[in-house]
Amino acid sequence: MNYFLDLFFSGLTRGSIYALIALGYTMVYGIIGLINFAHGEIYMIGAFTALIIASLLTVLGMNGMAILVISGLAAMVYAAAYGYTIEKIAYKPLRNSPRLAPLISAIGMSIFLQNYVMLAQTSDFLPFPDLIPNFAFMEPYSDFIGSSDLVILLTTAVAMLLLTIMIKYTRMGRAMRATAQDMQMAMLVGIDVNRVISFTFIIGSVLAAIGGLLIASHVGQINFYIGFIAGIKAFTAAVLGGIGSIPGAVLGGFILGLTESFATGYVSSDYEDVFAFGLLVLILIFRPSGILGRSENQKV
């Protein structure tokens, strides 16, 4: 039973990271119909920023939780700046081009950022400090859930709750939904669509940076390539849940995380990806628009 729970919680932890990244894919797709392949790189840059700031603060002698919060905020701000800038230079000039053009631009941006980080930092794996402290009250449950799992799950839950409230009840949220449903009409009722798009990229990047920081601290090492793998998985999660749908991205993330975890635990870690992508193939055969996707543009 403990083994099952262990797999279950590590699946949830993994799934919540996928979900955090998948939200960025799905929101951008919902608004401008673009698969932002550079999104995984934002996550990677978030993790690197957190590492740099955390190392600095460790030298200054701060304690664990403060480092986690400050380096997390720095990662969010830095990643948001990257997300905003990428949209402005790589996608906005191509807004009215055929759909393939921004897609190629996104792939180019992804390769560029990977190589930039590789050259500016290193191609080796770097150790990432364990920023999340071990809580004493978690001791009795340590067989199947660790303190960092708990922090990741709670942070993800709070982030998703805030996102939901923002989209449902604030004016920016309304503007985002309107833009997703009919961009031209949104302009005609006076919405500054460029601002809405920039904002969407910023929110997606902030969520990815949170994911980057948490998983890096959980796993304990990062390199320039982590964004590519995580990006592909999160993209899979978004498609699984129905790309363009926000609850779909979350659901897809958790399903993917749990599938991988159980496949690793009960079959073999060699087959983790086989199960994950096999599941994707199955779902796309029976529900081509994903689990929660509508057949035609149900977005954001």
Partner: peptide, 30 residues
């Protein structure tokens, strides 16, 4: 629109997945 022009369409173009109230509230944004 901010200068004071508003329009409707021949083939209705509401925001279909938003409520009636939200559709009107969106108009107040500018």
């Amino acid at each position: 629109t901010a200068k004071g022009m508003a329009r409707t369409f021949q083939n209705i173009r509401l925001f279909p997945e938003m409520t009636v109230l939200e559709n009107v509230m969106i108009g107040c944004h500018c």
